[in-house]
């Protein structure tokens, strides 16, 4: 299992780097093209949007892995150690549930994009694969969220 995980994570990082770098370089190419060659990059707006999907949805999974989603933990939880553990479990399950909900609803969006053959304006790129990508990343995010819970519970049991 372990090697597969690290391979997946490495793949996710490469994809993220690629989208992020391309996002910046695309703007540069567009601006330079406009001034130096008097042509804009054809469809740069829609390419930017597709790269944004890559950055955002890879970023969501990466942020979950690093537990970077903003949590307000200033108020103490009642019922001490036990309360904290129950709350932690409930919170993770809830977050995973909401993530799964977002994944499912965006899957329906992808199916609709496929059915109607939605495409971009200038380049006519099909949108369905991009929306499926969103949904898949949200499903992965759900799995990562549950993985974190498993890790927490495991550590606590080991601790006892």
């Amino acid at each position: 299992m372990k090697p597969i995980f690290s391979l997946l994570i490495a793949g996710l990082r490469r994809l993220t780097e690629l989208c992020m770098a391309a996002l910046a370089l695309l703007t540069l190419a567009d601006v330079l093209g406009r001034y130096v060659f008097n042509v804009s990059v054809m469809g740069s707006v829609e390419l930017t949007e597709i790269l944004m999907v890559g950055v955002i949805f890879c970023g969501i999974v990466l942020a979950t892995m690093k537990r970077e989603h903003v949590v307000v933990d200033l108020l103490p939880l009642p019922f001490g150690e036990m309360g904290a553990r129950v709350a932690n479990t409930a919170t993770h399950l809830l977050a995973a549930g909401i993530s799964a909900l977002l994944a499912v609803v965006s899957w329906s969006q992808a199916e609709s994009a496929l059915e109607y053959g939605d495409q971009t304006t200038m380049l006519g790129l099909p949108l369905a694969p991009v929306v499926y990508f969103m949904s898949i990343m949200l499903f992965i995010n759900t799995a990562v969220q549950l993985g974190l819970l498993y890790k927490d519970l495991h550590r606590e049991t080991a601790h006892d």
Binding site: L23, E49, M52, V53, L102, V105, Q109, V130
Partner: peptide
């Protein structure tokens, strides 16, 4: 609610103007 949530997720991705945030 189901459709609206899907639309929001989908829409939040394709945002040209918001590309300034990551950049």
């Amino acid at each position: 609610a189901y459709a609206m949530t899907g639309a929001v997720v989908r829409e939040s991705g394709f945002q040209y103007l918001l590309s300034v945030l990551p950049l």
